[in-house]
Simulated scan of single mutants.
Amino acid sequence: MKRIPWIDLRSLVALSMVVVFILISAGCSSSGATSSEDPNEIRVDYAYYSPTSLVVKKQGLLEEEFKGEDINIEYVLSQGSNKALEFLNSNSVDFGSTAGAAALMAKAKGAPIKNVYIYSKPEWTALVTNKDSDINSVKDLKGKKVAATLGTDPYIFLLRSLSEVGLTQDDIELVNLQHGDGASALSTGQVDAWAGLDPHMARLELETESELFYRNADLNTYGFLNTRTEFAEKYPEHVERVISVYEKARKWVIDHPEEAAQLLAEEADIKLEVAKKQLERNDFSNPTPGEEQKKAIIKAGNVLQKSEIIDQDADIESLTNELIDPSFAEEVISELKGD
């Protein structure tokens, strides 16, 4: 057998070491590039049911936060949780404002989202009817036309309210309409009742004397700011910076209630008194998601599972734990308190 010259063996070893070094360096370089990479844009929604999102947009707080960083800021209007979740699922936004239970429904269907911040604890939904209606209780809804927006907190509120009195969706004639259209359908008599959402609900209450015939603040789930899981994993620092911007907006709303109401009135094109009533129903005191929110979402999830909206085999508790991630908000708020 022909012997390989010693010089060739040494060359082969040296060449191998060079190749290994290059591969390791490339790997380190690639890893470093990924962790320090900035997104080209950050896309957030704004919604009339999320007053803090309106402050973020109107005051240009994101633009101020990322000034000089060559990151484009884009705003998209969400007309309901269902729309915000559609935007998140289709990668049309990076942050979307929804009700907590609606986010759980989406998570159960495989939506790649996580809740990273609480923008408010609202009583934004109730069951509504016209002032001359013979509907006085949830039981009276049996056989009636009821408007609601599928996949949103008002819809879930309706299901839970029916469940409390031994009824189900099958006992009513559900009319699936977006929130504003549901309000119009009620005021024109096309439906008998409506699972309302502010500010539309507050407007009907003040302008047409519509009756909020069933209210239960405990059945309203929290206002969740969700982000796409991929975005959170790729840009954790930017998630925290977006949350810090929402924190500025939240504190501004608390400190400037009159100006916040005026801003909401202008942006949502509603009367000032309507905007004030909506804000009265929002608690902005606790922005960090945690056990309180998990308990509320699990309760809602159990009803949704019983109503066969969520698959019977789904593990509600595990889904909730996967959905709610307090780590980002905890980090931001801890740093702000330290300042």
Rank of each mutant, 00 (worst) to 15 (best):
V274R: 04
D134Y: 01
V128P: 00
S133P: 03
G68Q: 03
S16P: 02
I333N: 01
V332N: 00
V332T: 03
S133K: 01
P122A: 14
A275Q: 12
S120F: 06
L104H: 00
V76L: 12
L186E: 06
E308T: 13
T288Q: 07
H200K: 09
V239N: 08
G100N: 03
G180Q: 09
V55H: 05
K306W: 05
E173T: 05
Q312E: 14
I156F: 06
G60D: 01
R10N: 13
S11G: 14
S327K: 11
E211V: 15
G166E: 08
L174N: 11
R3V: 05
Q169N: 15
Q305E: 06
A300S: 14
R281V: 00
S161H: 00
S16F: 11
T129G: 05
L61K: 14
D134Q: 09
V165I: 10
N136K: 04
Y246V: 05
R203G: 01
R250G: 00
E240K: 14
S78N: 08
I4N: 07
G68W: 01
E74V: 14
L162Y: 05
I270H: 10
S210C: 09
K295Q: 13
F284W: 03
P199G: 13
T188M: 08
E64M: 02
G68R: 00
L197M: 10
F328T: 09
R250M: 10
L158H: 04
G27R: 06
V242M: 03
Y222E: 13
